[in-house]
Nucleic acid binder design. Structure first.
Lengths: 105, 105, 105, 105
DNA sequence: ACTGAAGGCTGCCCGC
DNA sequence: GCGGGCAGCCTTCAGT
């Protein structure tokens, strides 16, 4: 009988592994659901902040800045400064070229 | 008046705006921390499952499948509806038939 | 015959709309393929730059910085500075709390 | 010459590294510009299709379907393979049967 | 340590 | 003009 086979798969002696698997799936899905809820809460807070007159983009930038390690940030900034310096005076970009071509059409 | 608020934000007169900002930052960072905790929990569960003999990759595939499946039915319906709308007035044309067959797959 | 019906759908009088649709699909897929090729080229260039000793992350940051409008960037930086100032001295973050709790375990 | 002195100061020894960096930046920005152009072309094609009476959303869905379909078969195969691997040693258990049926859907 | 995938985040485009 | 949906980018993580 199909149902017996089903029940065996889910509950029988051989189903212990299945029970274990289902337990894991359950835990995972609960955790994911909680994460999803938090993401929504976060979205709400940003919306609220925006409603209070704060710039959401800047607020996100602020949070990001606070999140990352100050040392790492300094390191990255330092490298970036070096590159910026290496390109100093180099305003002739492909993007500029394209804009000129576009204007010439 | 908006300008007063602007000036307050920039000068910190009374710090009320600063307090508000701090409150938002605090709420955001708490929520993010909770999310981070859940991500770690999730990672642990996967590790535990792996320790129990389950293949993590397959487990993830299973979870993903279960996650998208419910939406998927709705999505398929939605696409089907959209196709019907896109083909409005052509339903009796061969193209309409082809689209319907495609959507029905 | 099924094949004739197929051919009608694809090539017959009633298939003119189908031809048009297929032409659009063809153009779109060609353009997407070209985009994909460029993405791969880009990836190669970054890999090459990395091989030449440049920091890929910083390089991307540099490119991003050059891409956005200088005025917009200044505006964002200005707002960010304002927020930073409003939070000055506020180092007590949830993340910090969590770290302390973690250390206490 | 003043410019040479300037450039030396900003780029370091001989400016060779700076030149190299500029070359990379140039290549990257050109590729990105080409991508941007293609994106615009794509947008135009969609607009044109819309003008011809096609529903843009449905068209995008169609393209997406065609794009993922080839991969999809491979992906499905891959998942199936993964499941088989995950269940190695349990194939003769009820769980194995269930997993195989699930993967076969 | 690096590479390839997976997931989350951000910016863009459309519809309301 | 704005909020939602979607595509692309970035980051992180498992695997080699």
């Amino acid at each position: 009988m199909t149902n017996d086979r089903e029940r065996q798969q889910k509950q029988g002696t051989g189903g212990m592994v299945g029970d274990l698997l289902r337990a894991f799936v359950d835990r995972i899905e609960r955790l994911e659901e909680e994460k999803r809820t938090l993401s929504e809460d976060l979205k709400e807070v940003y919306a609220e902040a925006k409603g209070a007159g704060f710039d959401a983009k800047a607020l996100r930038a602020l949070i990001r800045e606070r999140r990352i390690d100050p040392d790492d940030r300094a390191e990255q900034e330092s490298i970036l400064d070096t590159y910026r310096a290496a390109l100093a005076g180099w305003e002739r970009t492909p993007l500029g070229d394209a804009a000129e071509r576009r204007a010439a059409e």
